[in-house]
Design a protein around this nucleic acid. Structure first.
Lengths: 134, 134
DNA sequence: TGATTGTCGAGAATGATTCTCATACTCTAG
DNA sequence: CTAGAGTATGAGAATCATTCTCGACAATCA
């Protein structure tokens, strides 16, 4: 079995994880997704949620970010390269992209003799709705 | 006791953690620092290493980044705002700063109605030494 | 020196994530 | 449609980094 052959079967559990992700409006942990599935009466094992998320992350179908305690958060995202602007209060996330940043990253990398550079970038702030509600 | 009053005492253990950090040429985990202290014959508890690192991180004296498995890596850094360009093979880290990125982040944030925006950015690549050695 | 109070250390506890392995299910060839 | 092969699942154990607990110790200061 090669890597490209795994994760191809369509099961009730995988569809459930996908739909839970699509209902979520912000980044969610595996545990939260598992809980929301249980709450709606869909029985899916926690390990399966983790496996599904990992496979989707590997395939690039979901984005993974980590908070400052190292917990992983998942979100269904567009497939092109982008970054996130996340509200620190409500968790709402906006996809943003910045050619300027990509160019800057490449330039900095080559100036320092680095090659094959990838980058991770997240913006965290307070969205207007949350700022207004205080 | 207020926050400003904690972490003021000078102890052998704290000095040891600081010196271990200064000897390290790249980002290190708490476990690695603990091990290097033990290796040189300095007895310091693991919990103390964690506590010292956390306090320094809170004070802004060290930078913390996380790898893709969520483990925390620490490094003694300059105190002004900056980012890192890290070699994925040898772990060597270069501090970089980019006014362009800061401005872009602020602009994107305000365009989307976000305020109080902070950002995290890391560049990962292969340094020239490692690229040459292959 | 003695009192006060922060700090240490060993090991237990925590919590997210991964692993194990017996069982159930998908998919496809026939 | 059906059996067979091989993948996927689930419950709970295992892992592993990190944090907590609490009695003992040490830094600071009068």
């Amino acid at each position: 079995m090669t890597d490209s052959e795994v994760g191809t079967r369509s099961t009730r559990q995988r569809q459930a994880v996908v739909s839970a992700l699509e209902e979520a409006t912000s980044f969610s942990t595996a545990q939260e997704l598992h809980e929301s599935l249980r709450a709606r009466g869909t029985k899916v094992g926690l390990a399966t949620v983790y496996r599904s998320l990992q496979r989707m992350a590997d395939a690039g179908d979901v984005d993974v970010i980590r908070n400052d305690t190292g917990e992983a958060f998942y979100r269904r995202c567009s497939s092109h390269h982008h970054h996130h602007l996340i509200c620190r209060e409500c968790g709402r996330a906006v996809e943003v992209s910045g050619p300027a940043v990509e160019e800057w990253a490449d330039r900095i990398a080559s100036e320092n003799g680095f090659s094959d550079v990838s980058h991770s970038l997240e913006l965290v702030g307070t969205c207007n709705a949350c700022a207004a509600g205080r």
